[in-house]
């Protein structure tokens, strides 16, 4: 196993409506492409937002590359790129300007890196157009480019294929595959599509009602059943238990 990229220990966050995430433990190693599955409201976005510092956990520890998110935020986030839930960008600025804003936070990003990121997500031709004129899929691509602009070692993608058409989904899958295999980038991805997860990830976890039920290697999990079947079994078993 490679270097530990992400170490989540006993993280809990309870919202006012009593939902949230409870006692989450998760460790990702360099090169992992980890898929987090779960129904709506399971706590995926809550976990992702805690990981990038948008909301604070009630308890628990999070470390990126050994740096604590609480005490060394800048160090911890230095090599992390993320796309959280809704794809956001400054609508009154162009795609290029949006990426220039992001790039300023990193010392070693040059104009050609920005061009490269735009080419990677297929927006180079429209780089000078305002984001407000973009389709939902194009906005999702600019959000992805924003996540990748820092040349990250670890990328967190919350629903990266939302709003994308089939071509877009395949492109995103190819980008993730290329970056993980060629550059050894670690990914933490959430998606509703078990099929996509099966194609992209090497490890998956199932989050249900705020608890991380199972984690496993995708090859082992899909030996006797598809990932979709595994996921449904997992959720239904726990849903029945919960009901009883």
């Amino acid at each position: 196993m490679g270097e530990i990229v992400l170490d989540v220990q006993n993280v809990t966050k309870q919202h006012k409506n009593h939902r949230g995430i409870f006692h989450i433990n998760l460790t990702l190693h360099k090169g992992d492409v980890f898929g987090l599955m779960g129904p709506n409201g399971a706590g995926k976005s809550t976990l992702f937002k805690i990981l990038v510092g948008l909301i604070k956990a009630d308890q628990g520890k999070i470390r990126f590359f050994g740096h604590s998110l609480d005490t060394a935020f800048e160090q911890a986030m230095k090599k992390v790129g993320c796309l959280i839930e809704k794809s956001v960008a400054y609508e009154h600025l162009s795609a290029l300007q949006n990426l220039q804003l992001a790039a300023r936070f990193y010392a070693d990003i040059h104009p050609k890196d920005i061009e490269e990121a735009l080419k990677t997500v297929g927006l180079y031709e429209v780089r000078k157009e305002k984001v407000s004129d973009f389709s939902a899929g194009m906005k999702q691509r600019i959000a992805l480019a924003n996540a990748l602009i820092s040349n990250p070692v670890f990328v967190i993608l919350d629903e990266p294929i939302t709003n994308l058409d089939l071509d877009g989904m395949i492109e995103v899958r190819n980008i993730i595959h290329h970056l993980s295999t060629e550059k050894g980038i670690t990914f933490l991805i959430s998606s509703h599509s078990a099929n996509e997860m099966e194609k992209i990830c090497n490890r998956v976890g199932v989050l249900f009602k705020g608890e991380l039920l199972k984690i496993g290697d995708i090859d082992e999990l899909t030996e006797r059943q598809s990932l979709e079947e595994f996921y449904l079994n997992c959720v239904q078993t726990n849903g029945v238990k919960d009901h009883e």
């Binding site: 800048e74 992390v80 993320c82 956001v88 936070f105």
Partner: peptide, 14 residues
């Protein structure tokens, strides 16, 4: 409200 604050808050800056 528009969520664009996330673009800065998720960067390595306090």
């Amino acid at each position: 409200e528009t969520g664009t604050i996330k673009l800065a808050l998720t960067r390595p800056i306090a």
